[in-house]
């Protein structure tokens, strides 16, 4: 890393550096905001999937119980 920094051109952090940093920060920030929105959507879908899973499991448990009752009656 230090070799990389030594090879890098001088990074003027004065007037120019402020604008360059702003441009790159805006770029990264917009992408991060978009990724955060996508993550929220994914969480919502994940919750819905868990709900559907629970519904399927409940249905399967009910069916198994009914089958056991029918078996016991026989």
């Amino acid at each position: 890393m230090s070799a990389l920094l030594a090879a890098a051109p001088a990074l003027p952090l004065g007037e120019a550096g402020k604008y360059v940093a702003a441009a790159f920060v805006v770029f990264v920030a917009v992408i991060l905001i978009y990724v955060a929105i996508m993550a929220a959507k994914l969480q919502r879908m994940s919750r819905e999937l868990a709900e559907l899973n629970a519904a399927v499991e409940a249905r399967e448990r009910g069916e198994a119980a009914r089958a056991e009752q029918a078996e016991a009656r026989r």
């Binding site: 990389l4 890098a8 051109p9 990074l11 003027p12 120019a16 550096g17 360059v20 441009a23 770029f27």
Partner: peptide, 23 residues
């Protein structure tokens, strides 16, 4: 990003500001 800041030379006319060009 590494190439922009550690490899690309500074522009003779605009200097460091020209880095915005790569985005």
């Amino acid at each position: 990003f590494a190439l922009v800041f550690f490899y690309a030379p500074l522009d003779a006319d605009q200097g460091f500001i020209q880095k915005i060009f790569y985005v």
